[in-house]
Nucleic acid binder design. Structure first.
Lengths: 161, 161
DNA sequence: CAGTGTTATGTTATAAAGTAACAGCTTTGC
DNA sequence: GCAAAGCTGTTACTTTATAACATAACACTG
């Protein structure tokens, strides 16, 4: 759900990159240096990051000064292959925790610390499909964004008033 | 769900305005001429409409030439009172079919005709709450956007290839 | 390995969506 | 009628995203 507070995030990133490489190899998709860099930056935290923030980071990091298009194109590729998700209500992107499984987008979004937790709930999937079926609707894509307070921020609230 | 093809839309709009007026009166909220106009324009169709499209319509219709802020402020008011919903993935707004019931935002979005159908599903609500509870998450707001093809567009697809 | 089609990147310009900040006007309630 | 609160106007600006066209890298084929 939400990432553990003190988890080893470096290995988080490394694992995401390995998975992405494997997945792209399998599909014959080209995970170029640029796309890889964007993916890595998206994974630099478990909070969603915007396209222009990514751009800024790339400029800080490298010698190149990429244009917005560059970032958007990389994001488009990564999304197309299910490596990242876009959080529509935030205009921002996060790494997908289960790439390649062709699932929908289900997120818990903490309005206090801005962390997001990706969810994968079968009962919810079933409910979504049922709703679509009831409406005679052919479902292509699902997007669920739940906004509230994560456990840690609730605790902090209780403590500090 | 989705509006009937040949329904009397004028009465749709009228009813939405009446409901809004009643609701605002009950709450002591001021549904001013401007807000009313925006609400009416949002209700001019069952497809979501963007802030700048609304602006354009207001300019065509009236003698005033409102600035973007004007529209955004009206939209903010209407949203705050649950009279309209924002569809995050489209940056656009639609009239709410059940104002005042304090529900979440659940939509079927047709990617072909761009109509949206608002849904109100208890099983889905329950599933969303369950997901939040499982994650120890305090749920404030829910947003569900399902993308696909509405019944009519499926039929059209089948016919024309 | 030259030639060719395809995919990726670069570049410039611009569109689209949303907000900050401050001034002036209306309504409401006393 | 007057003050407080709430609404509107206006200017300027930020943030997010895309169109259009040029160049470069790759990868397949003969």
């Amino acid at each position: 759900m939400f990432p553990q507070p003190g988890h080893d995030h470096a290995s988080c990133i490394a694992s995401a990159l390995r998975t992405a490489e494997a997945l792209c190899r399998r599909r014959g998709a080209r995970l170029t240096a640029q796309r890889r860099e964007v993916l890595e930056l998206v994974w630099s935290g478990h909070a969603p990051i915007g396209a222009y923030a990514l751009l800024e980071r790339m400029r800080e990091a490298g010698t190149r000064r990429p244009a917005p298009m560059t970032v958007y194109r990389a994001l488009e590729f990564l999304q197309a292959h299910g490596l990242i998700h876009r959080i529509a209500s935030l205009n921002a992107y996060v790494g997908c925790i289960a790439p390649g499984s062709g699932h929908g987008s289900q997120f818990l979004i903490c309005r206090s610390c801005h962390a997001v937790g990706e969810v994968h709930d079968e009962a919810l999937d079933a409910a979504l499909e049922q709703v679509a079926a009831d409406g005679g609707f052919r479902l292509d894509e699902t997007r669920v964004e739940l906004e509230g307070l994560c456990q840690r921020c609730q605790a902090r609230d209780d403590a500090h008033g």
